[in-house]
Structures are given as C-alpha cells and as structure tokens.
C-alpha cells in the first residue's frame, strides 16, 4: 500500500470505541431482542475495528488481529442465529416479542397461540 494511502488508524480506533458505546447502549437500553442483537453486533464490530486499527503498526497491518477478528465475526453470527431462533419460538408461543417483564401481554391472551406459518 502506498504511503499516501496510509489510513488514519487513530480515526478508526476512536470511531470503533464510539461504536462500542452505541452498540452497548442498544444492548442494554433497547428491549426488543432483535434490536438488542443489532446492538450486540455493532458493539462487536466496533470492538473489532478498534482491534484492527490498533494493529496498524508502522510495518503494515498485523495479520494476527485479522485472523482473530474473522473468528470473532463467525462467533457473533452464531450467537445471533441462536438468539433469533429462540426469540422466534418464544414469540410464537406467547405472542410477545420481548421478555415477559418488559412486554405487555398480548390482547385476548394469545398464550399458546399456534405456530403461524
């Protein structure tokens, strides 16, 4: 990579840190499980950007963080898929998208509603 294209790693590191904050806010303050998952993914992605930017040494990008980040992306996807499936089953069973303590009961008591498909 030519020197005039050397990216400004500090910008990305700071943007990554801010993304971690945004994602964490979504994970904690939002209640819809899918919204929390979006927050989880943005928090993870921001963290990886911090990692990648911090790995930009004077010798070019460090391959070790890159490999670890790819692993992290796959792990985050696995977790997202699992929670999506659990939330879908829970909603089909109860008619609620969110956790019982955070979600009003569905009208007409739809608990035990059959699978809509």
């Amino acid at each position: 990579m030519s020197p005039d294209l050397a990216p400004h790693a500090t910008i990305y590191a700071l943007v990554g840190a801010a993304l971690v904050g945004l994602g964490l806010y979504g994970l904690v303050a939002r209640r819809h499980p899918l919204r929390r998952l979006v927050g989880f993914n943005i928090m993870g992605s921001g963290l990886f950007i911090v990692f990648g930017a911090a790995g930009m040494g004077p010798l070019g990008p460090d391959p070790v963080p890159q490999a670890l980040i790819i692993t992290g992306i796959v792990v985050a996807f696995s977790a997202t898929a699992l929670i999506t499936a659990l939330a879908g089953r829970y909603a089909a069973l109860t008619g609620r998208a969110g956790l019982p303590e955070e979600t009003p009961p569905p009208e007409g008591g739809a608990a035990g509603r059959p699978e809509a498909s």
Partner: peptide, 12 residues
Amino acid sequence: AETLAAAIRYAF
C-alpha cells in the same frame, strides 16, 4: 415459554 425467556435473558 418461561425457559425460553430465561434462555434469552441469560444469552444477553
């Protein structure tokens, strides 16, 4: 329903 809710809570 309760165990799914517990699992989702635990997951987060």
